[in-house]
Each structure stands twice: as structure tokens, then as C-alpha cells.
């Protein structure tokens, strides 16, 4: 009887118990620093190579469209890509279609620029948040200086050394999009496709299956798949960032969920066998 009760309990564990287990599974690894080396996925490897192959005088459009809500994945991704760009001394501008991204990116880059000898306006610029991505991009492609007009510090495009020689989308060497929403697709539809731009995207794990099609069709030339992609990229760059730190927590949480699914099924299987044996006797 005892075992039967246990098994019956496994079938209907109260959801609050599940939630508590999840909290514990995620927080306990915070107290330890464990590094697990991970194999690098094809997509990350490809992305790394594309960024690595950028020539010295490249100009990158860094589209950051994430907010606090997808920070868990996108922050580490942005940081890893920025570090790679800055190590290679590549000029970039930031453009956001999410209002929060403007501030979050500004904080991130200003925090890093000293280390890599970057200057705001000279090596990079933040053009902040713009509304209505489709229509903005339609105007942006043929005439970048007019559409951008000012950076977030109120400096005009003409006065920004980083923007020298940039007129149309054809002058962009590569488009990077870090996103947790549909902005990647809009970029593909209205900028990448129109100007045949080289585009890479760092996306949240949810978007991977969809974006793999874009990678396959050549619309994207590289992709960083979710948090795992960020972990791999950090490993490629040889530094320990937020993603690597979250690696163990993510692993334990996943294992917990797998275990719970299995536990739930034990009851179902036993029940099935019992009911089929009863049927057999009849």
C-alpha cells in the first residue's frame, strides 16, 4: 500500500511543490562556481568565423531589440558579440526598436569602452530607440544620414566621425541583430533582403527553429542560438560571462524537468498496465 501511495502522489504533486523545486534547482548552483566545457555548435562556430573574418575597416549595424524581459539570454549574447567586435576594433552603431534596449545597450557599451579604447561618436554611436520598424527601415535603406539624423546624445550624424562615408545600406558591412522578438524577421524582410546585406542574428532559444530556416536559406549568415549559444561564444572568446555562470543552473533546471516528466509517467505506465491486466482477466 505504501508504494501505491507514493506512486499516487507522484501523479499529482502539487504545483507549488514543483515551483519550489525549480527555485531550488536554479539558485543552489549560484553558490558554486563550476565550469563545464561545452562542445561548440555548428551555428556558433559559423557565426564566430563570420565575425572573425570581418575586415579592419568594417562598419557594423548593431540592431539591439531586447528588453529586461529577455535579458536572461540577450544580454550575454550582446556582450559576447560586442567584445568580439571591440577586440577586432570594428566600428559599429547601435539601433533599437525596443525602448528599453537603448538604455541597456548604452550602459553596457559605456561600461566596456575604456577597456578597449573606444570613444563614443568616433568608434561607435548609439542612435537609440526608433518606432515603427518597417517604415523606418524603408526610409533607412536608401538614405541613412537623414533617417538617423541624431544620436542619443543629440549629436548630428554629420558631426559623428563613425558615420563618415556611410550613406546607404550598401555601405554596411554587416548587420547584427540581437533580438527576442519579431524584429529579426522585419530586418530580413525590409533591410537584409532589399540590400542583400550580410546579416547575423543572436536570438532567444524560442526563435531557433524558425531562424534555422533563415540560416539555411542564406538570409542569415550566422546565428547565436539562445543562452547555449552565448555560453559557447563566451568559451570561444575565452572569458567567463553571465552566460557561463548560468550554465549549471540551466542544466540542473532542465534535468529537474526531465525527471518530473519521467516521474509523472511512471504512474501513467503503472496505471495502464494495471488496467490492461484487469481487462485481460475479463
Amino acid at each position: 500500500m505504501q508504494t501505491r501511495n507514493v506512486i499516487r502522489y507522484l501523479n499529482r504533486i502539487d504545483r507549488r511543490v514543483l515551483y519550489t523545486l525549480l527555485i531550488i534547482a536554479i539558485t543552489i548552483p549560484f553558490f558554486f562556481t563550476i565550469q563545464i566545457r561545452v562542445p561548440i555548435s555548428r551555428q556558433t562556430e559559423q557565426l564566430y568565423k563570420v565575425v572573425e573574418a570581418l575586415p579592419q575597416n568594417s562598419f557594423v549595424l548593431f540592431g539591439a531589440d531586447w528588453s529586461a524581459s529577455t535579458r536572461g539570454e540577450n544580454r550575454a549574447q550582446s556582450k559576447a558579440l560586442l567584445i568580439h567586435l571591440m577586440r577586432k576594433k570594428i566600428h559599429f552603431i547601435i539601433l533599437c526598436f525596443d525602448p528599453q534596449a537603448k538604455t541597456l545597450m548604452q550602459e553596457m557599451v559605456t561600461g566596456m569602452q575604456k577597456e578597449y579604447g573606444y570613444t563614443d561618436g568616433v568608434d561607435w554611436a548609439n542612435f537609440g530607440y526608433r518606432t515603427d520598424q518597417v517604415n523606418f527601415l524603408k526610409g533607412f535603406g536608401p538614405d541613412i544620414p537623414t533617417t538617423l539624423s541624431m544620436d542619443i546624445n543629440g549629436k548630428r550624424v554629420q558631426d559623428l566621425p563613425v558615420m563618415r562615408g556611410i550613406h546607404t545600406a550598401h555601405d554596411i558591412t554587416m548587420l547584427i541583430n540581437v533580438s527576442g522578438s519579431t524584429t529579426t524577421e522585419t530586418y530580413i524582410d525590409y533591410l537584409q533582403g532589399s540590400y542583400n546585406l550580410k546579416m547575423v542574428a543572436a536570438v532567444t532559444s524560442v526563435m531557433i527553429p524558425e531562424m534555422i530556416n533563415r540560416l539555411d536559406s542564406g538570409q542569415l549568415v550566422g546565428m547565436m542560438p539562445g543562452l547555449q549559444g552565448a555560453i559557447e561564444y563566451e568559451q570561444k572568446l575565452g572569458y567567463i560571462g553571465k552566460a557561463s555562470a548560468a550554465s549549471v543552473s540551466a542544466s540542473v533546471a532542465h534535468l529537474l524537468i526531465i525527471a518530473l516528466i519521467l516521474l509523472g509517467n511512471i504512474y501513467t505506465l503503472i496505471e495502464k498496465r494495471m488496467s490492461s491486466s484487469v481487462r485481460g482477466r475479463n
Binding site: S205, Q228, S247, V248, S251, V252, H254, L255, I258
Partner: peptide, 9 residues
């Protein structure tokens, strides 16, 4: 799920 976590790999 197993394939995307460090411990699973």
C-alpha cells in the same frame, strides 16, 4: 532538452 544543456552534453 538534453542536447542543449552542458550536463546533458
Amino acid at each position: 532538452m538534453l542536447g542543449q544543456i552542458a550536463l546533458g552534453q
